[in-house]
């Protein structure tokens, strides 16, 4: 963590999430329980570690931020109450709040639908992928 921009991003992520990465003891339980583990380049415990190091831009550029299911397993099962999902969420928001940075574009939607899919799936995807 060297340059002022990274420091500012780190502070912003910590403020938005309310997470204190220093509480983490690096046991890896969050990643062990994460249902999206196989889909992620950086895993929940790495989010915690990398935020602590100030490597926010690396996380912002990773598709991992769109792989969190918001299942709260890591939040529930972390022995130190670190709540890693809140970091994933904050970094995802930093990205999609930028103009034109939506992960899901309106014209992609028809292809994702089928007759049985509940609104809940789409509404949630919208919330996770767009601003």
């Amino acid at each position: 963590m060297s340059n002022p921009k990274e420091l500012e991003l780190k502070e912003q992520v910590i403020r938005m999430s309310g997470v204190d990465p220093l509480k983490c003891m690096r046991c890896g339980k969050c990643s062990g329980t994460c249902p999206s583990y196989d889909e992620m380049e950086y895993h929940p415990h790495q989010f915690v570690y990398m935020v602590e190091k100030g490597e926010i831009e690396k996380l912002m550029a990773s598709p991992s931020i769109f792989k969190c299911l918001s299942c709260y397993a890591c939040v529930e099962r972390c022995p130190r109450d670190v709540e890693p999902a809140k970091l994933v969420e904050a970094i995802r928001l930093l990205v999609i709040r930028q103009q034109g940075a939506n992960h899901l574009k309106a014209n992609q939607i028809p292809d994702l639908l089928d007759d049985d899919m509940p609104q809940q799936a789409l509404v949630t995807a919208f919330r996770k992928y767009t601003k």
Partner: peptide
């Protein structure tokens, strides 16, 4: 109105 399906965990998120 629809709740949006997922709680946005960030503290600075108001509108949703």
């Amino acid at each position: 109105q629809c709740c949006g399906g997922a709680f946005t965990m960030a503290k600075d998120e108001i509108a949703t």
